[in-house]
């Protein structure tokens, strides 16, 4: 039987690895190649690397760096950040990246997802959405880059991406990012309801039990940031990943 995937999500900023809290205060956590090598040795299910600066500063992906990442990954690698054209996606695939993750450019024009999916298949293109809780408890799309606010309801944005061929949806709970205080299971429930493609839930994991709760709420995969790079109350940097038998025991029905 297929396993639920547990995916380290690494954030890149100016070539270094950082970890944010609620999408702010990036803390430097080390050299990305070193971290990726460790995650490869730990036999992680998959790896996601997102450049949080690229779209904001209008930069293209750092192909040289990404090629080095791909050379270290004997598991699927997903890259996101600054991808605006099919040609950029093609260049990433040729370097050894399996999946590209689209956000800003997709919010501006979903046809980018369609064009990548038509050429390389839906399995190769993910759409990622950041959702934030408002003061009154409602949830709305949060935009990392660009000044335009998003007025469409978050769930219909996801459905539009799927309609355009996105093979997986990455759903980030902004308020949980970096907190390690548990995931927004209600968001995961609403996001996975009737979704025909896998949902990768991200934001808030601080324990194995949190991963199990996300899976029970409908996630096909769980993305983990802070919990895999920080250790202890003072958030010392330590790269970790659960043992395979721990994950098997955790996710058994």
């Amino acid at each position: 039987m297929l396993k639920h995937r547990v995916i380290p999500c690494l954030l890149l900023k100016e070539g270094g690895l950082v970890k944010t809290t609620r999408f702010s205060d990036p803390v430097y956590v080390g050299d990305p190649i070193n971290a990726i090598r460790i995650f490869n040795d730990k036999e992680v299910d998959e790896l996601m690397v997102l450049d949080i600066e690229a779209s904001r500063s209008g930069r293209e992906p750092d192909y040289g760096l990404i090629e080095q990442f791909a050379g270290e990954c004997f598991m699927p690698l997903c890259y996101g950040g600054g991808i605006r054209t099919v040609e950029q996606a093609q260049r990433l695939f040729a370097l050894g990246v399996e999946k590209v993750c689209i956000q800003s450019a997709g919010l501006a024009d979903m046809s980018l997802i369609r064009r990548i999916a038509d050429r390389f298949g839906s399995q190769s293109v993910l759409f990622s959405l950041d959702v934030k809780k408002g003061l009154l408890g409602g949830r709305a799309v949060h935009r990392r880059s660009g000044s335009r606010t998003e007025s469409r309801p978050w769930r219909s944005v996801i459905d539009e991406a799927v309609g355009n061929g996105a093979g997986e949806i990455v759903l980030n709970a902004v308020d949980r990012d970096g907190t390690m205080k548990g995931m927004d299971t209600e968001l995961i429930r609403q996001g996975s309801q009737g979704l025909p493609v896998p949902l990768v839930a991200v934001g808030g994991v601080g324990s194995l039990a949190d991963i199990r709760k996300a899976v029970d709420a409908g996630a096909s995969a769980v993305g983990v940031g802070a919990w895999f790079v920080f250790y202890g109350p003072h958030r010392a940097v330590l790269i970790t990943y659960p043992r395979y038998d721990e994950l098997v025991a955790l996710l058994e029905t």
């Binding site: 297929l2 396993k3 639920h4 995937r5 299910d45 493609v197 896998p198 995969a221």
Partner: peptide, 11 residues
Amino acid sequence: GLKVPHMGWNT
């Protein structure tokens, strides 16, 4: 609850 494509890790 099974999806197509068959995507992910399997034994």
